[in-house]
Design a protein around this nucleic acid. Structure first.
Length: 288
DNA sequence: ACTCAGGTATTAC
DNA sequence: GTAATACCTGAG
């Protein structure tokens, strides 16, 4: 396939570091020239920011302009969203200033399910390593600028992988979860295509929770970061618990703060934009 | 050697 | 329902 290019001038709310380091994705890596290269669906793309321009270059299955507009959520007015959230209080204002270039990517649902199962009780370098090894072992090769890249393996491609093989790739105790979840999806016990059509987030969440390795936090990450795009959820991990306690609850021991309390505060403060608020707060507190 | 990291599943009150 | 505990692995 041939390289394509797409250039955008004067775009708001678009900073490479904020987008790729805010915790939503695992397959974008910074290059020597400060650009980022990543693999998503059957595409390999390099993104570079120069002055008032953003340059997208890569191998895309379809038209690069449409591919990028969809993946980078370019048709959403983040300036408007940020204004709304910044009005809530001074903490939101601060965190939004910090992560002003964040955009929530439209990532593949299946990839997000597997990626966030892997993320459980794990650290980012290791999560990224595992995903790369999975892709190299079971995904498709794409050559871009003389270098080999690998697509995220489909459910079909993981169908016959054994628990032992996963263990060899360093999955650890998540091996069985990957195996079982893949099986459920391939056998259509859970139909992830139908999920996208269901506007009832509560129902979709319940369905996700039946998958092995998917608990409340992972389910919410999937809902928020995949192309399900449910902005009303509020994934609570250690960092979010920390920042919510620091700002709004102020208990001595943050680990004793109940999830319920955090959820309630998130709902009344942030409403349908809770997921976005979570991202700004998470990124700010973590100080990436 | 030992702790910790984007939690979940299991078991026990 | 809510609380305690084990769990692969590899980096610091």
């Amino acid at each position: 396939m041939k390289e394509q290019e797409y250039v955008i001038k004067d775009i708001d709310s678009f900073e490479l570091k904020d987008i790729f380091d805010c915790g939503q994705c695992f397959r974008w890596n910074e290059q020597k020239d400060k650009s980022y290269t990543g693999v998503f669906k059957n595409n390999v793309v390099n993104v570079k920011k120069e002055k008032n321009k953003v340059i997208f270059n890569g191998i895309c299955e379809k038209n690069i302009k449409e591919t990028i507009e969809d993946y980078f959520d370019l048709n959403r007015d983040y300036e408007k969203i940020k204004k709304q959230l910044a009005n809530i209080d001074k903490y939101m204002k601060t965190s939004i200033q910090y992560g002003k270039g964040i955009r929530i990517l439209n990532q593949d649902l299946w990839e997000m399910i597997i990626s966030f199962i892997i993320s459980a009780n794990n650290n980012i370098p290791r999560i990224k390593g595992i995903i790369e090894r999975l892709a190299k072992e079971f995904g498709n090769e794409i050559i871009y600028r003389g270098k080999k890249y690998y697509t995220f393996p489909t459910a079909e491609q993981l169908k016959d992988v054994t628990v032992e093989e996963y263990r060899k790739l360093g999955l650890g105790f998540r091996d069985i979860r990957l195996y079982e979840t893949t099986k459920m999806i391939v056998e259509k016990k859970i139909d992830i295509k139908e999920m996208k059509k269901n506007p009832n987030t509560i129902e979709v969440r319940e369905e996700l929770l039946t998958l092995s390795g998917v608990g409340p936090k992972v389910a919410d990450c999937i809902l928020l970061f995949s192309d399900l795009k449910r902005f009303e959820v509020f994934p609570i991990d250690v960092w979010v618990r920390r920042v919510m306690n620091d700002l709004y609850i102020k208990k001595e021991d943050e680990t004793k703060v109940s999830k319920k309390q955090i959820e309630q505060i998130a709902k009344e403060k942030f409403g349908t934009l809770a997921g976005l608020a979570q991202q700004y707060l998470f990124y700010w507190r973590r100080g990436a």
